[in-house]
Simulated scan of single mutants.
Amino acid sequence: MLIDSHCHLDYFTETERPAVLARAAAAGVGEMVTIGTSLAQSQQAVAMAAAAANVWACVGVHPHNAGGEGGVPAAETIAALTVHPKVIGIGESGLDYFYDKAPRDVQAANFAAHIRAAQLTDLPLAIHARDADEDIASMLEAAYAERPFSFLLHCFSSGRGLAERALAIGGYVSFSGILTFPKSDDLRAIARDVPADRVLVETDSPYLAPVPLRGKRNEPANTVHTARVLAGVLGLSEPALADLTSQNFRRLFTKAA
């Protein structure tokens, strides 16, 4: 069984979601995590997870939304959303200097609040990193030195330096459909060097449909395509890769064990 460790089920309508879940199950994707991007949307994610046995949720504020909904949330406010049994992590949060939809100092304050929430709850933090490798790594290292916490670099497409610095403090790395793109040789080389016990797979659907589905709306069933490529990169059979990434998922997201 595969687990899609990061998707956005709220982008599918209430009418569409049953078929999306059915196609995932038919493809061998037995579980998935739907991700929060704002406080209000995080509550929707919790409701979707509560309504489906094989769906989990993370709660948090995406860097694009940092500073909205009344400003940067307190860590305690984020942590309070995790009391539901289907909430297994914090996020996604992080830094995005490519789109810069929120001021960078506000993004940093938002990210720091999420790190603190992860420390308060002992739940892993799903991290969005785009064109901000140095600041992401520095914030993680400083916070980890104060109080260790678990985290996942989701939809990894950053440089080797961020991967190595994150792995050095116990981080996990998740690969999306980007791994399957023809020009992703450097990313596949990084994936090859990630310790086997720290790697996960995801779709980030409805974005980033993998080869051979480029240009189409992505969905959790398509985890299989990324898993197939990752299996080849790591020299594993597809069933072995599914077992490995599922074990890693349970080790990281202990509340889903």
Rank of each mutant, 00 (worst) to 15 (best):
D204L: 10
L123G: 06
A168G: 08
A26D: 15
E16K: 04
C7Y: 06
G60D: 09
A143P: 06
G70N: 08
K183S: 14
A24W: 03
D243T: 13
P195S: 07
I78V: 15
K86H: 11
E16V: 01
D204M: 09
P220D: 08
L153G: 01
H6S: 13
V194C: 06
E134D: 15
N110G: 10
N218L: 07
G71M: 04
L153C: 01
R160A: 14
P73K: 13
D122T: 08
A80N: 10
F98D: 15
T203F: 08
P103D: 04
V224L: 05
H8M: 06
L152D: 00
A221C: 06
T82V: 07
G235W: 05
L234E: 08
V20S: 05
M32I: 01
F175C: 00
L244Q: 12
A74Y: 00
D10C: 11
S176D: 12
F151Q: 03
N248F: 00
E202P: 09
V87G: 12
L21I: 04
Y207R: 09
I127P: 03
P73Y: 10
Y11Q: 13
L244R: 14
T180H: 03
A51S: 15
I136K: 05
G30S: 14
D135T: 13
G177I: 00
L213G: 00
L213K: 15
E219N: 10
R147Y: 01
R214W: 03
D100S: 14
H62M: 11
G215T: 09
R165M: 00
G36H: 12
V173Q: 02
T121A: 09
A26F: 01
E141A: 14
D135R: 14
V46Q: 10
A196G: 15
E16P: 06
G91H: 04
A66Q: 11
P18K: 10
L9R: 12
R217A: 12
S237V: 04
D10L: 13
L179Q: 06
A143F: 02
Q119M: 12
V61G: 12
H84R: 09
V224Q: 02
P73C: 11
L244E: 07
A25C: 01
A256Q: 11
H225Y: 15
L152S: 00
V20H: 03
A242I: 00
G67V: 08
F175L: 01
A189T: 13
D131V: 02
E141K: 12
D186T: 13
A74D: 14
E141R: 11
R104M: 12
E31W: 11
P124G: 05
A113V: 03
F175D: 04
A257S: 15
S42N: 10
L162V: 01
L179G: 07
K216Y: 05
A126Y: 00
L236Y: 04
T82E: 09
V106W: 01
I190T: 07
M32F: 02
R251I: 07
